[in-house]
Design a binder for these strands. Structure first.
Lengths: 334, 334
DNA sequence: TACGTTACCGATACCGGTATCGATACCAGT
DNA sequence: ACTGGTATCGATACCGGTATCGGTAACGTA
């Protein structure tokens, strides 16, 4: 009473296993009559096939491994959405893993994925340790690293420079005349891209003879609640800030809420800046500054790059695809 | 220059394939010396194994298929987080699919997943059409339906009654004295659970001789922007509403933002109510009402149920696990 | 008539592991 | 010395498909 096998379908259709296989795959060398018989038999038996056998035998899978650091930050599910959409119609099936920003866990996930013989791998970031990189190189499948751009790719990379994004945001903010700038940061021990943005931002400040007036950070994951709490602390100590740069938009939303509670006028009195361009920033009652990360596009392009790389001409493809974050200061508008 | 096979590892260790297999799996009937030799050989060759062959041969996989309707609503990634955590240490690997609330797509995804011979399946909702249910029944693996509770499960169900959640929210709101209530809805053609909440809410209104004063809906997916827009429309027509029930918290947040822009006092003047208890509701400058859905717990319990069901005693397990949503009105507090 | 082509089909050998069972070596007990 | 048990190992037969290749029948053409 197991799932029926191809053998059983073939028997019922009165043909060989091979003919049944061809018929169901739409391969050549089968008569229309056989196709018909096999399809009917498969339908009657409720045949669903066995990808394990298929992949083992044909020595290729339709699997694309995807490793992201987190599920609780909406950005990564959005990247996944992009990947899914980029894979649409290709017959490829993404398989996800979540590393929790833990590089050891990431290595284990990748090792596990490799044992499924995926056709390609999409992983987040460029900061894998040598052990992981070795694993990937040895596997000899296309590896696409996404989200980041600051570093050396194993194979391909689709992303943006977070250092640059941080720098540009700083420059835009400075250009708007703000000078007393604070920073609030989440997951400061592991969110490498946030660290890069902060570094880029600080470098730009330094170029202008400035530094952060004050900084509040936490090891906790980013959340609007954390953004609100850190902002309250920050403003308690430094009420005279005219701008707060946040590790991302979740934090920035919380920061804005703190300002509202405190009766601070945003953005006139104090500018709140984040990163990502989350959907919510377009709904807030006042505008905050943000860099809109092209995360969906990153997912789509990574998927398409994976497809292209699988189809042979791997050396002909660009190793780096840079997508740009678009800055909105928010106070310019309206 | 492919990935090394077990055969090669065995050869290098000077033992048979079978002994190498046992050594790497930690099975009995191998000497310590052999284990040592094999492990070293595997290490040197960078052996990663082949799950396809393993699963085909042993006739079981460590795969758990998971189908969710959307990636862009943070709730579902959170459920996935719960599933991942519930599977932690079990050696089981979740595989995800996104149906976009499309039942045909869901059927295709499920069919595809079944061809990977998963050990269990976790799918969202109870509203699968007969064709899909047949597919699942025939597969004879444990099927866990999640999130909903209003309907007949195929096998197991872990969730909450959305009808009931809607009803309870209505009762709490009525008890607080609100009478002129409006509704804003997203994805009204496909978000079945939101439809059930609304129905429960309306039933409670009716019990009290009331109806929605006004309703604004959209086919678009829920978003705070949509919540804001629909609220603006709603309040333009009916400025005298004292409460707006929203299809979920994303919509509710946007609704709140619209109120803020319009200078309406929340919650005193007008109460905003949503569903889910998203993290952001704890950071907003004013409180909104919400039912906190136990989505992470649902994921965890579904995962554990899957594990339990796989280990044989399937008939002994409870078919329905009800988790409760916890209501906060928001105006009670602070 | 003979021959080449084309369309269709199936036997066989894998793919890379594991299940199963029998073989061997060694030891203790009688 | 013989028996039985235990520890260790390997040969073999799959798992359920596909790749490959050779075979047959039907048909067109020289």
């Amino acid at each position: 009473m197991r799932q029926p096998t191809l053998e059983e379908v073939a028997a019922r259709a009165g043909v060989s296993k091979m003919t049944a296989s061809r018929a169901l795959r739409g391969a050549r060398d089968v008569s229309a009559a056989s196709i018909e018989k096999v399809k009917i038999a498969a339908e009657q038996l409720g045949y669903v096939g066995n990808q394990l056998a298929l992949s083992l035998s044909s020595r290729r899978t339709n699997l694309i491994g995807v490793v992201i650091p987190s599920m609780s930050n909406i950005v990564f599910p959005e990247v996944l959405g992009g990947i899914i959409s980029g894979l649409e119609g290709s017959g490829l099936q993404p398989v996800f893993g979540v590393s929790d920003y833990d590089l050891d866990k990431e290595r284990d996930i990748i090792r596990n994925m490799l044992s499924w013989q995926p056709a390609a791998l999409i992983i987040t970031g460029l900061d894998q340790p040598e052990e992981t990189r070795k694993l990937l190189r040895q596997s000899d499948i296309p590896v696409i690293q996404i989200m980041d751009l600051d570093g050396e790719p194993i194979d391909f990379v689709v992303g943006l420079s977070h250092t640059q994004a941080g720098r540009e945001m700083a420059e835009a903010i400075l250009a708007s005349g703000r000078k007393r700038i604070g920073y609030i940061g989440s997951a400061v021990d592991r969110d490498r891209r946030a660290i890069k943005r902060r570094a880029g931002f600080e470098a730009a400040l330094q170029d202008n003879g400035l530094t952060f007036v004050s900084v509040e950070t936490s090891l906790d994951a980013s959340s609007s609640r954390l953004g609100r709490d850190l902002t309250e602390r920050l403003l308690a100590r430094h009420p005279d800030l005219d701008c707060i740069y946040c590790s991302n938009d979740d934090m920035a939303a919380g920061s804005l809420f703190a300002c509202m509670k405190l009766g601070r006028a945003v953005p006139d009195d104090i500018l709140i800046a984040g990163f990502n361009g989350l959907e919510i920033t377009s709904a807030l009652p006042v505008r905050i500054a943000t860099s809109t990360s092209p995360r969906r596009a990153i997912g789509e392009q990574a998927a398409q790059l994976a497809l292209a790389a699988m189809n042979g001409n791997r050396k002909d493809l660009a190793r780096r695809i840079e997508l740009l974050a678009e800055i909105t200061l928010g106070d310019a508008e309206k």
